[in-house]
Simulated scan of single mutants.
Amino acid sequence: MQNWSDPRTTTAYEPAASVGVPRAARDAGLRSYMLSVYNYMASGVLLTGIVALLFASSGLAQQVLATPLRWVIMLAPLGFVMAMSFGLNRMKTSTLQLLFWAFTVAMGLSLSSIFLVYTGTSIATTFFAVAAAFAGLSLYGYTTKKDLSGFGTFLIMGVVGLFVAMLINLFVQSTALQMAISVIGVLIFAGLTAYDTQKIKSMYAYVAGTDMMGKVVIMGALNLYLDFVNMFTFLLQFLGDRR
């Protein structure tokens, strides 16, 4: 999902950032850090939804997505993610922030097609169902004492397999395969929500008080955003009512 390091909370040594820091102060810092991640993530989802709705309701989405420009719109989010991931160490935090907001706008343009395909009721129902599931899964990832790193490796391999299956289905156009992809996609990104939350939490001890903290907040928000949006789109494909 990203190329920043993945320390676990079960390491055998105490990170230097936490040495001599009172427990209450560390807990307060962690809460502030996680709140920043969730604020970025939620704001990104909200911005994406607004852009998608406005683009679709204006009539521009139907016109533009019927032209070759649709490929630019569909691939632009991937370009932003790659730029943020591979340029993380070289970029300033402000640059990373700008790319994050540009990414969420690009995702809004890309996701505008759902308003042309599915009913508003099914989109709203799916969104709130995913929001509730995301909250529960993220809470589990935050509070569990179990190390989820092993599951993460398996789930990321599952994402690769899912991508391959989606490419194959572009050519075979199998309804049964599409349904299987949707169900498996929901399960994979549900698992990744818990895994990524634990991973983001574990990063705090290593970046607290450093220049990397702002960058890690943004990248953490990006990963949770991707988990949420992918879970939403796969569930919508599975349960959504078409127009």
Results as ranks from 00 to 15, higher is better:
residue 1 M to S: 14
residue 1 M to L: 14
residue 2 Q to H: 15
residue 3 N to I: 15
residue 7 P to E: 11
residue 8 R to V: 14
residue 8 R to Y: 08
residue 13 Y to R: 11
residue 14 E to G: 13
residue 14 E to V: 15
residue 14 E to K: 12
residue 15 P to G: 12
residue 18 S to A: 15
residue 19 V to F: 11
residue 24 A to V: 08
residue 24 A to K: 08
residue 27 D to S: 14
residue 27 D to M: 11
residue 28 A to K: 12
residue 29 G to Q: 14
residue 29 G to W: 11
residue 29 G to M: 12
residue 30 L to D: 02
residue 32 S to F: 09
residue 32 S to T: 13
residue 33 Y to R: 14
residue 33 Y to Q: 08
residue 34 M to G: 07
residue 34 M to R: 10
residue 35 L to W: 01
residue 36 S to R: 15
residue 37 V to P: 10
residue 40 Y to G: 04
residue 41 M to Q: 07
residue 46 L to I: 12
residue 50 I to Y: 11
residue 52 A to G: 12
residue 53 L to S: 13
residue 54 L to M: 15
residue 54 L to R: 15
residue 55 F to T: 15
residue 55 F to I: 13
residue 56 A to D: 12
residue 57 S to R: 15
residue 59 G to V: 06
residue 62 Q to K: 14
residue 63 Q to P: 04
residue 64 V to Q: 08
residue 67 T to H: 07
residue 69 L to G: 02
residue 69 L to Y: 10
residue 69 L to C: 02
residue 74 M to I: 06
residue 74 M to R: 09
residue 76 A to R: 09
residue 77 P to Q: 01
residue 78 L to D: 10
residue 78 L to H: 06
residue 79 G to E: 02
residue 81 V to F: 15
residue 83 A to R: 07
residue 85 S to H: 06
residue 85 S to E: 04
residue 86 F to D: 05
residue 92 K to M: 08
residue 95 T to C: 07
residue 95 T to I: 09
residue 97 Q to H: 10
residue 100 F to W: 07
residue 100 F to S: 09
residue 104 T to K: 08
residue 106 A to E: 07
residue 110 S to Y: 04
residue 110 S to T: 02
residue 111 L to D: 08
residue 114 I to A: 03
residue 117 V to Y: 03
residue 117 V to C: 04
residue 117 V to H: 07
residue 118 Y to C: 04
residue 126 T to C: 03
residue 131 A to N: 03
residue 133 A to M: 04
residue 138 S to F: 00
residue 139 L to I: 01
residue 140 Y to H: 03
residue 143 T to C: 04
residue 144 T to D: 10
residue 145 K to W: 02
residue 146 K to M: 02
residue 147 D to A: 05
residue 150 G to W: 01
residue 151 F to D: 09
residue 152 G to W: 00
residue 153 T to C: 03
residue 154 F to G: 03
residue 156 I to Y: 12
residue 157 M to D: 03
residue 159 V to Y: 13
residue 163 F to G: 08
residue 163 F to M: 13
residue 166 M to Y: 13
residue 166 M to R: 14
residue 167 L to A: 13
residue 169 N to H: 05
residue 170 L to Q: 13
residue 177 L to A: 14
residue 180 A to R: 06
residue 184 I to G: 05
residue 184 I to M: 07
residue 185 G to C: 07
residue 185 G to E: 09
residue 187 L to Q: 10
residue 191 G to E: 05
residue 192 L to I: 03
residue 195 Y to V: 09
residue 196 D to C: 05
residue 198 Q to E: 04
residue 199 K to Y: 02
residue 200 I to F: 03
residue 200 I to K: 06
residue 200 I to S: 01
residue 201 K to T: 09
residue 202 S to M: 06
residue 205 A to T: 02
residue 205 A to R: 02
residue 206 Y to C: 05
residue 207 V to P: 01
residue 214 G to R: 14
residue 217 V to Q: 12
residue 218 I to S: 01
residue 221 A to N: 07
residue 225 Y to N: 03
residue 226 L to R: 00
residue 227 D to E: 00
residue 232 F to N: 01
residue 237 Q to G: 07
residue 242 R to I: 10
residue 243 R to C: 08
